[in-house]
């Protein structure tokens, strides 16, 4: 049909405060792509070509408006030496952190994006996606934020404990995680992707506002400042409940906030004039077992989000479940595409 915009065009307008027809519809279709493509998660997580093919297959199937390069939040920690366990049908998990003793921090080395861990897998996937569809679809590289990476280097419990008992060591680890993230973000950009920071552990469900302000926020801000030097619009995704820190999100400098278990009205009234919102259908709604219809649940999200002053992206609160019911996701995307700015 003549006059129809493609996702690249629609995102481009959103990022310069233009609201022509409707928000981009971009549910976080990540590992679910492997189910669409019919591959196991070990290949999906360790072969950039397969990751890219799977993403393209999923995008062809659902028509959502962006490609997502993401496997797991341990990506950078693994590249710095933590051991992760890759599994056939589940996402990789931390097996053994590299920093079992704090004294090991001094020996920690920054990763080489071209060779460490699975960083090259990511870059290959980005490159392939950008080459294949970069003119019509934005490619998002989900990069673990420093707080989350530090936890992957140290082990989650130990790192959280460190923030209270060994704050200096925690900061040292965060500083290194930040440097690694900057280095990796640069490579993602050069392959054509827009970095999107994921910080699941900096959730208000896990840490206090004070801990967030002292250990997560400053490093996110530094990372975002680096990306802003290149005039890039940065999305920050934080899982779980974030009402206690939502007002601090704009202090990180994030241009878009991908929210999870937070009422979009609260996000809108708190930071909606400064930050574009991305969200936030609860992923379990997409499971076959969910008794709630998509219509019932997305009504409030879309109606409220679309009125956000700085703009809105119709999305899910977190990753689409690997084994979600495709019909439900299709339904959500269809309803999203029918939405219109007032």
């Amino acid at each position: 049909m003549a006059g129809e915009m493609n996702p690249r065009e629609r995102w481009g307008l959103l990022l310069i405060d233009e609201f022509p027809d409707r928000p981009p519809v971009y549910p976080l279709v990540t590992s679910h792509a492997s189910a669409v493509y019919g591959c196991d998660l070990i290949s999906y997580c360790s072969d950039g070509k397969i990751l890219a093919e799977a993403q393209l297959a999923a995008q062809r199937k659902y028509g959502h408006e962006g490609l997502s390069v993401f496997t797991d939040v341990g990506l950078i920690a693994e590249a710095m030496g933590s051991k992760y366990h890759l599994r056939e049908f589940e996402v990789p998990i931390l097996n053994r952190p590299i920093i079992e003793e704090l004294s090991a921090i001094d020996k920690l080395k920054l990763p080489d994006p071209g060779g460490s861990g699975r960083l090259p897998v990511y870059l290959e996937a980005i490159e392939k996606l950008y080459q294949a569809k970069g003119d019509v679809l934005p490619v998002f590289a989900f990069v673990p934020a420093p707080f989350t990476t530090a936890a992957g280097l140290r082990g989650i419990e130990d790192f959280l404990v460190d923030t209270i008992t060994e704050p200096e060591a925690a900061h040292q680890l965060l500083e290194l995680s930040l440097e690694a993230a900057i280095k990796f973000c640069d490579e993602c950009i050069l392959c054509g992707a827009l970095p999107m920071l994921v910080d699941p552990l900096a959730s208000g469900s896990v840490i206090s506002r004070r801990t967030f302000a002292e250990f997560a926020l400053p490093y996110n801000r530094k990372l975002i400042t680096h990306l802003h030097r290149y005039d890039l619009d940065v999305t920050l995704h934080i899982c779980g409940e974030t009402s206690s820190i939502v007002d601090l999100i704009s202090d990180t400098g994030a241009d878009l906030f991908s929210l999870d278990k937070l009422d979009i009205d609260i996000a809108r009234s708190s930071i909606g004039d400064k930050v574009r919102l991305v969200g936030n259908l609860a992923p379990h709604n997409l499971m076959a077992s969910s008794g709630v219809s998509i219509e019932d649940n997305c009504h409030h999200i879309i109606d409220s989000g679309i009125r956000n002053k700085k703009g809105f992206v119709i999305s899910t609160g977190c990753e689409v479940p690997i084994r979600c019911q495709p019909e439900k996701l299709q339904k959500y995307i269809k309803l999203g595409k029918e939405a219109r700015y007032e």
């Binding site: 934005p138 950009i189 050069l190 005039d231």
Partner: peptide
């Protein structure tokens, strides 16, 4: 606040200007 423009080609690569690479 949006009027800065002294940015390198990589900035515009990300927004889809693939030839710049």
């Amino acid at each position: 606040e949006w009027s800065q423009y002294l940015f390198p080609p990589s900035t515009h690569v990300v927004s889809g200007n693939r030839l710049l690479r």
